[in-house]
């Protein structure tokens, strides 16, 4: 049990960040940000550009190590873990500036996501015994299945780089899902999508949640966030200025100030 779990009441949180601070040289990108995500929730993270949203993601996923503060996933500390270890514990992510394996096929991209849940080594690869073959088959089947779920079933053999933008975002989601995450962290999944695509994405994210994956997302599309999220946290200048149900956050004077202030400047 982590201390924050008691405070939030409803059982152990899936993700608990306490007073996370991240400094780069003299610049403080994050200042004592605390955030919890409960199992089954969809939590949104919003804030003006440069507020530290992606930095916070990077602190969660092991890409950065916080200068101070702690992050726990299912009560396990993530301190000092490298990104691959965080992924193994069940936290997968997508990237704001899409980072697919551009010259691998769409299917292979998802198959790479299965790496962390499979075992075959060099010997298995060369000898390709029954166990390895079964594993390969299951990797392929699950990956194809995931592609179907995100609507890319017909594009399995294309190169990832040849996909249209919106499809690349969905492929990143499929790849992350292939790691069997408990928590899926999405960095601006709707960026660059048109209205129809965004609506489809909303449907997709809801089914993902129904299948038991908790979601944390950064997004600028306020409408999507209000419709989708159970709870929204707002970052401004590296600090958390609000955290609560969408309609409440929307009316929060500090949030209005931050957005209008940012707009006016």
């Amino acid at each position: 049990m982590t201390p924050s779990a008691e405070r939030d009441g409803g059982g152990e949180p899936l993700l608990a960040a306490r007073a996370v601070t991240k400094r780069f040289g003299g610049l403080t990108a994050l200042s004592e940000v605390s955030l919890t995500v409960q199992v089954g929730e969809i939590v949104g993270l919003i804030g003006p550009n440069g507020a530290g949203k992606t930095t916070l993601f990077n602190c969660f996923t092991g890409l950065y190590h916080p200068s101070a503060g702690t992050v726990h996933l299912e009560g396990r500390p993530l301190a000092g873990l490298k990104p691959h270890a965080v992924a193994a514990l069940g936290l997968a992510r997508t990237f704001q500036n899409i980072r697919l394996f551009a010259n691998m096929s769409v299917l292979e991209n998802v198959m790479v996501g299965r790496h962390v849940r499979t075992r075959a080594g060099v010997l298995g690869a060369v000898l390709r015994g029954p166990r390895t073959r079964a594993e390969e088959r299951s990797i392929r089947e699950r990956s194809l299945d995931l592609l179907d779920r995100v609507g890319l079933g017909g594009r399995a053999d294309q190169l990832a780089r040849h996909l249209p933008y919106g499809d690349q975002r969905r492929l990143e989601i499929a790849r992350a899902l292939a790691t069997e995450p408990k928590l899926l962290a999405l960095d601006e999944p709707a960026a660059g999508m048109n209205h129809t695509e965004t609506a489809a994405l909303k449907g997709l994210l809801e089914t993902i949640r129904e299948r038991g994956v908790t979601l944390l997302l950064i997004e600028h599309d306020v409408r999507l966030m209000m419709d989708l999220c159970d709870r929204v946290a707002v970052l401004d200048y590296g600090r958390k200025i609000a955290d609560g149900p969408p309609e409440q956050v929307q009316r929060d004077p500090a949030v209005i100030e931050a957005y209008l202030g940012a707009g006016a400047a």
């Binding site: 990104p83 691998m104 790496h115």
Partner: peptide, 26 residues
């Protein structure tokens, strides 16, 4: 056989984008 295996895919992923490969649990 190595190239078309779990390990071979991991190598290719690292070659393509090491950060993303690491984030995917490799």
């Amino acid at each position: 056989r190595l190239q078309h295996s779990r390990i071979g895919r991991a190598w290719a992923a690292i070659r393509e984008d090491e950060v993303a490969a690491e984030a995917m649990g490799i």
